[in-house]
Design a binder for these strands. Structure first.
Length: 289
DNA sequence: CGCCAGGGTAGAC
DNA sequence: GTCTACCATGGC
């Protein structure tokens, strides 16, 4: 089926699909022809394209609510922009320079967890290949037109597949064991990712639970919380964010631990710290390349 | 070959 | 609480 969703107009931060996906926190988008992009969202293969004020998509079923949630079409982006711009002059400049930045709401926290366990000390392109590889090895094929993709395997599927396919992928840094262990925790009901996504589960408790997973520390727990568990105050600190913070908010030569940087971010950026972090990330990556 | 990439961990003080 | 060595792989 082919469908169209209206994109709410925004004066300061208009929606730009290509840029949103390019700087995306979801590793599973692939460009197609004529402005279309192929993705796999929570088991659904989907093609999306922007036609001015509308989001067009092709899929096997109605994905209106899923896509609205994913791209945050139901959210007041102008209000978030205004909040970020009011934090300090640098943030105001970044909102103007990168108006397309969005923190997407990924529908599958399990996939997000595995993807970011694989992200440690890897380049974005490589992470993308690893996540795709896990889907191809253990997931199920899904087809839309001539496009064949693979669903990301559920914890049950990962556990049934056992250690062999993961170790054969040579993920390094014991990531194969971390993923299998996390799958076991979810399967045994020791880890309830859906409960953590509820607004009644606050950010601190969410992060504490995620950090109990092997291979998940402050940074990756914050990525999972921010990108798939609806915790906009989560502030993942990686090498880029560290550099951006040090150059813009502290005098040259200052030495701050990650703990001090987390405390600064919480106090200075507040409720939408994660969005502020995405802006810093974009600017730092842009400056580096 | 050397270096680094969207870190995490155990063990040491 | 903070510092350190080590974990493993691919791309340039």
């Amino acid at each position: 089926m082919l469908a169209r969703l209206p994109i709410p107009p925004s004066t300061c931060c208009p929606f730009d699909l290509a840029k949103v996906l390019d700087g995306s926190q979801d590793f599973r988008w692939r460009p197609l022809e004529a402005g279309w992009h192929s993705g796999v969202l929570d088991g659904n293969i989907v093609h999306v394209r922007q036609d001015r004020g509308h989001l067009e998509y092709r899929a096997h079923t109605n994905l209106d609510s899923l896509l609205k949630s994913y791209f945050r079409l139901d959210e007041d982006i102008d209000a978030i922009c205004a909040t970020l711009s009011s934090l300090d002059p640098h943030m105001a400049a970044l909102v103007q320079a990168y108006p397309h930045v969005r923190v997407l709401r990924q529908p599958n926290p399990w996939e997000c967890t595995v993807a970011y366990i694989c992200s440690a000390i890897n380049k974005v392109g490589l992470i993308s290949g690893i996540v795709e590889g896990i889907a191809e090895e253990i997931g199920k094929p899904v087809k839309l037109g001539q496009d064949i993709r693979y669903t990301f395997p559920s914890p049950e599927q990962v556990r049934e597949a056992g250690p062999t396919p993961l170790s054969a992928m040579r993920l390094g840094l014991k990531r194969d064991r971390h993923i299998l262990d996390a799958a076991g925790q979810v399967c045994r009901g020791e880890l309830d990712l859906n409960r953590l996504s509820l607004s009644k589960t606050p950010y601190p408790e969410t992060k504490r639970r995620l950090k109990q997973l092997h291979g998940v520390g402050h940074k990756i727990a914050d990525c999972i919380a921010l990108f798939s568990l609806d915790k906009p105050e989560a502030f993942p600190i990686d090498t880029h964010i560290r550099k951006a913070l040090m150059s813009r908010y502290f005098p040259p030569g200052a030495r701050l631990s990650d703990k001090q940087l987390r405390e600064f971010a919480r106090a200075h950026f507040g409720r939408y710290a994660g969005w502020a972090g995405q802006l810093l990330f974009q600017s730092q990556r842009n400056a580096a390349s």
